[in-house]
Amino acid sequence: MKKYHLFFLLIVSAGFCLGQSKKNDADLKQWPKGASPLEVGQRVAARFIATPHPNFGRPTPPKTITYPEVCTWYGALTFAKESKDKKLRDQLVQRFEPFWTTEASMVPLPDHVDHTVFGSIPLELYMQTKEKKYLDMGLNFADKQWGPPEGPRVKPESHVFHNMGLTWQTRLWIDDMFMITAVQAQAYRATGDKKYIERAAKEMVVYLDSLQRENGLFYHAPDVPFFWGRGDGWMAVGTAELLRSLPENNPHRPRIMEGYKKMMASLLKYQAESGMWRQLIDDPESWPETSSTGMFTFAMITGVKNGWLEKETYGPAARKAWLALISYLDENADIREVCQGTNKKNDRQYYLDRERIKGDMHGQAPVLWCATALLR
């Protein structure tokens, strides 16, 4: 009888430990020293403050602010808000001040998705400072995106999209679903005017219906049948950011949620044992890539935190991904193994041979997004 009781106690104890282990695997609040979102976010944000305006790796400064800097700036601002770091926020405000004077020429024109996303920064600054000059600048970008086609970038199809109630900047590139939805969602958050979030939702449904594959992922382009990590990353972040603010009664919400969940389920399948995702998502011979991993991690954290994804299933994946991602940060808070800027090409080897760079803001931004999402 004593042996039976001992055996029973061992089974119960093992079950309890296993349950505790699974619970810890899904925990998105407790972290090893140096791995907390607060510590990591502070390091990466400080690195951004110290970095001059980047120009896609070129030694010369850019003529206008580039979208990777915008993405990192937005991440640093949201991190400052969630970490209640007023000093960091003030530093980010000061970085913006020259755009009113000596660097005014560096403010991009709202004539392309990669330029219009700039508006998300002044809109965030408005929400944090309540200074109207930021609101006016940000709304100019958001409204010009849906205004009548104008400028040298207008193409015949621009008018077609505009007449459909979409932005004339529509390209049906998956990158757009962060670039477009970011500034429109920010305009909605800043004003409460539903027209902005409704624009973004309608646009997202068109992209999902046009581009999402049966497995939930997205080709880099219709004529390029490869699931490039960062390309899909833009869609993952874009859907999560949009759903975060999209009203529950919006008629497009079920379709967007369906597309988001379908993508997350596929990403769960392709996550490597290390916790990373690869340069080509479904290619086991492809190398682990940090910008896409950061983007997918953000999307999963956001889903778990908002109850869209099952914590028991996606919590461990998100935790493992975060810990894997930050292991690629060096002593300067520069992240390595970031795929260089990449055009489309119907050639697998082209993607495998892309340069792997360090400290590029395509990679820095998602780390800050993840840190923010973990603190929310």
Rank of each mutant, 00 (worst) to 15 (best):
Met1Asp: 12
Lys2Val: 12
Leu10Trp: 08
Leu10Ser: 12
Val12Ala: 14
Ser13Ile: 13
Gly15Lys: 05
Gly19Met: 07
Gln20Phe: 11
Ala26Tyr: 00
Leu28Cys: 00
Gln30Met: 09
Gly34Thr: 10
Ala35Arg: 09
Glu39Val: 03
Glu39Ile: 04
Gly41Pro: 00
Gly41Ser: 01
Gln42Lys: 15
Gln42Asn: 14
Val44Trp: 10
Pro52Ile: 05
His53Tyr: 13
Pro54Met: 09
Pro62Met: 07
Thr64Asn: 11
Leu77Phe: 04
Thr78Lys: 13
Thr78Glu: 14
Lys81Leu: 04
Lys84Gly: 06
Lys86Ala: 12
Asp90Asn: 15
Pro98Phe: 11
Phe99Ile: 09
Thr102Ile: 11
Glu103Lys: 15
Pro108Glu: 03
Asp111Trp: 07
Val117Ile: 14
Gln128Ala: 02
Thr129Leu: 13
Glu131Arg: 11
Lys132Ala: 11
Lys132Leu: 08
Lys132Val: 11
Met137Gly: 00
Leu139Val: 10
Leu139Asn: 11
Asn140Gln: 12
Asn140Leu: 09
Asn140Pro: 01
Ala142Asp: 00
Ala142Gly: 04
Gln145Tyr: 03
Gly147Ser: 09
Pro156Phe: 05
Glu157Ser: 12
Asn163Met: 12
Asn163Gly: 14
Met164Val: 06
Leu172Ile: 08
Asp175Glu: 08
Ala182Gln: 14
Ala182Asn: 14
Ala187Gly: 02
Tyr188Ile: 00
Arg189Ile: 11
Arg189Tyr: 06
Ile197Glu: 07
Arg199Ala: 10
Ala200Gln: 03
Glu203Val: 04
Val205Ala: 01
Val205Lys: 01
Tyr207Glu: 06
Ser210Thr: 14
Leu211Met: 14
Gln212Met: 13
Leu217Pro: 04
Pro222His: 09
Val224His: 07
Phe227Gly: 01
Trp228Glu: 10
Gly233Ile: 04
Gly233Thr: 07
Ala240Asp: 08
Leu242Val: 02
Arg244Trp: 06
Leu246Cys: 03
His252Gly: 02
Pro254Phe: 06
Tyr270Gly: 09
Glu273Ser: 14
Gln279Ser: 12
Asp282Phe: 09
Glu285Trp: 08
Ser291Ile: 01
Gly294Tyr: 03
Met295Asn: 03
Ala299Phe: 06
Thr302Met: 14
Gly303Arg: 00
Val304Phe: 07
Gly307Asn: 02
Trp308Leu: 08
Pro316Leu: 11
Ala317Tyr: 02
Ala318Ile: 04
Lys320Phe: 03
Trp322Glu: 02
Leu323Ser: 01
Ser327Lys: 12
Ile335Gln: 02
Gln340Gly: 14
Gly341Val: 13
Asp347Phe: 04
Asp347Ala: 08
Arg354Cys: 08
Glu355Lys: 15
Glu355Gln: 15
Gly359Ala: 05
Gly359Arg: 00
Asp360Ala: 13
Met361Cys: 08
Met361Ala: 09
Gln364Ile: 15
Pro366His: 05
Cys370Val: 15
Ala371Met: 07
Leu374Thr: 00
Arg376Asn: 10
Arg376Thr: 10
